[in-house]
Design a protein around this nucleic acid. Sequence first.
DNA 1: AACGGCATCTTTTTT
DNA 2: AGATGCCGTT
Length: 682
Amino acid sequence: MEKIFNHLNESQAAAVKQTEGPVLILAGAGSGKTTTIISRLAYLIEVVGIPASNTLTLTFTNKAAKEMKERSLSMIENVAYPPLLCTFHKFGLLFLKFNIHLLKRANNFVVIDTDDKKRIIKKINSELPTPLIASEISRYKNSLMTPDDAYKQTELFSYKQIAEVFAEYEKYLLENNLVDFDDLIALTYKLLDENPELAKATSQKYQYIMIDEYQDTNELQFKLLQKLCTVHNNLCVVGDDDQSIYGWRGAHIRNIMEFDQDFSGTHVFKLEENYRSRAPILKVANALIEHNRSRLGKKLIATRGNGDDVTTLNSNDENEEARKVAAKIEKLLESGVRAREIAILYRVNVLSRSVEEGLNRYGINYKLVGGLRFYDRAEIKDLISYIRVITNHHDDFSLKRIVNKPKRGLGKASLDKIELAAQKKGTSIYEYITQAPMEELEGLVRKKNAATLKEFAKNIQEVAGIAQASTYEFIDALEETFSLKDIYKNMQDGQERILNIDEFYGLFRDFVKKSPQSSLDEFLNELTLQSEQDQVEGESIYMMSIHASKGLEFEHVFVIGMEEGFLPLTGDGSDLEEERRLGYVAFTRAKETLTLCHAGSRFYKGRRSDLEKSRFFNEAGLCKGSLKCEKNTAFKKGDLVRHKIFGTGRIIGVSKSGREFKLKINFAGTKRDILASFVEKL
DNA sequence: AACGGCATCTTTTTT
DNA sequence: AGATGCCGTT
């Protein structure tokens, strides 16, 4: 008991103790959110006496789940079964394994990733852009729409077409017993919705539910949570409306804004004490986010005392910016700061390029986080396809991916012929290759290739036999039989690919060591749900998008590209309030110092364009008393501006007052003199 | 079947 | 600019 409350402040402790009923914990950046969740879990299990198996804690990323698991293990003692703590999708996977038979489907389904999904779509329709169809299908599934619903909903021909692709896509998944990411949640919901008894039983099993990063949930996840709360309302959600930065991906900020209306009798706790950043950093972050209208209202209170002022770094172009940032970082490193405590953040990934060059010139090592993920690399996906075919020879989808890797002379034309022949016989491609007489195969493809195909099928079977006997020997047998590394031996970026393959082999061996009794099947599904491999700790600084930085912290943070058009990013579909939240997330990553950089022009999309300093400098209160800053904001007669108290008005005159500009503004007929830093341009 | 040249697009990203 | 994708040529 003491151990649990030792490290908690008052509001954290209060939130931990409120175990019953709906609970909303508004956890500001750096306010000890994870500590609170873990403590609450420990309190439920160790003090209240709830069996660990009756709790459920859901996160969005594997990383968060992993961190919480590790930290909870050190806090919870004597637990026969560890509490279920996993991602939403993992929960869906587990649930479907036990219950998908109710949808008349076998539970040996395979989870496909976004790339697989796109390949399937592309095969069905190559006219419309695949990513569009993919995202529309995702949207339909998240709205629980059937292809039929989607078809009826629209009058547009192209969208009717998309609905038709959706129908065929669903048919394909069903026929091959595949499940996509959206299905993991949607089918789980469907099962609970159509089987009230199952919903009741599931809700009874998970009596205490906690959700991390609640501001990132979408509508379907919300509905799923409602089902899980069929027989109780012990739902505790933790999140921060000010850090909702995934609206563009369907996250429903409404969920957190209106939680207390969705669940009556909600207890609200605000965690506002910040244990991360120095006071000046928090001041700037608070000032910025206060400009958002749609928020629950929360202020970060500094506990770490005063520190350096937030610095603005002004450059003419991106090269100057890169030099200045690199020089500053070099100084920090010389003063003994560890490299991993320094991060460069940006709104758009392309902005990393110029800074990379600067860092290289200064000989500073950096690590790019994000970009192409390990499991998305073609060579790794090929390997996974090999393993899939070995576990399930009838997985035509994966087989087609690898049948010509390494080259076996099987191009599109030959493959189509084989596939057609297999379809006619009603068998899988693998089965067709093994069973068709040699003469028949030779009628379809070249003699030499027919033999290669037979050999390929034989090899698959052989390696499958080895896998069954010993997962230990499997990986070596795979490489020996198919020489997958040789494919890349003579390619330009081949060495890197071979290294990736070796890394994958290493990961596989680790998996086997950790759970020797597991089948390849389990390994595969685990893999599909896995995101990035753990970033290796090294002596290099970090560079990443603001999105990727969420949840992390660094002593020294540089935000580059703070210009209109980059942060905030403008254009169709952009949401100024979400951009502001992005700024807020970026600022609150910093523990000791925060440096905000902007450049007068950048080379972007093939041409150089002039840029205005971001309005966020003004909003964050970083412009007071400085004329230099006003130059870029360029208030002029006729501009519409907003004042926090007087509302919207039009500038009718500009004059200088000391070091600042004074504006004469017409607010709905009332003319007032206002200092420029107190209004924002509309 | 494989390669190379031309056109097109360009925010953020997890599962 | 740079990556990706499609199509036509070899």
